[in-house]
Amino acid sequence: MREKIVILAIGIVFLANISYAHRVDVFCWVDAGTIKCMAKFSTGDAVVKGTFKVFEGNKLIFTGTGDRKGNFSYRIPDRILKHPKDLKIVCIAEMGHKNYWIVRKDELSSTVSSQEDNSVDNENFLEEKSPSANSKPVAIDYNKLKEIVSVVVDKKLVPIREDLAELKEPKLSFRDILGGIGYIMGIMGIIMYFKSRA
């Protein structure tokens, strides 16, 4: 019987998928005048219908709810687009889980003019204007081109930003686990030392 229990205990430990939880990770980016956010638990599960709060400094300017996949988007008001400021997006999940992401004003300022351009079909625009063998080269407004490139680059950068955000997240390693156990033994050693002296 004893052997069975030991085997069962070992089985539970080894069959279990060692991962980490208890933390919400939020990632936000600016996409043509809209802040898009993605929130998930550190286990990889999406934060279902989490509450998102947008702060301008300490002032709450918007409260919304994410979808079932942990996504949330917020249309940046013109006022902020004209005078960009850092925005703090706080995600509150169930059971007291919370985290935030700060959208820097630099990101907002880069999207200022491209917001107006959002309705433009950028690819068609490029196609129409691109010189072909039979047409003469057409001069493209430098600023317009800059905005289009900015929108396209923003879109292309999203997966890279996601990867970077993931890399920034503290990863759990066996070194940390063993280090933690080592600290516990050390602290208990100190307690035992004082207990034995008393």
Binding site: I12, V13, L15, A16, N17, I18, S19, Y20, A21, H22, T43, D45, L172, I177, G180, I181, I184, M185, M188, I191, M192, K195, S196
Partner: peptide, 29 residues
């Protein structure tokens, strides 16, 4: 008591590691 401290150390380590162990249960864990 001083004699109980090693047991406390083992249980503290168990608690420390326990919340890292996810038991798969249907679609979630």
């Amino acid at each position: 008591k001083a004699q109980q401290v090693p047991l406390m150390a083992v249980l503290t380590s168990t608690f420390f590691v326990a919340s890292l162990i996810h038991v798969p249960l249907g679609p979630s864990s």
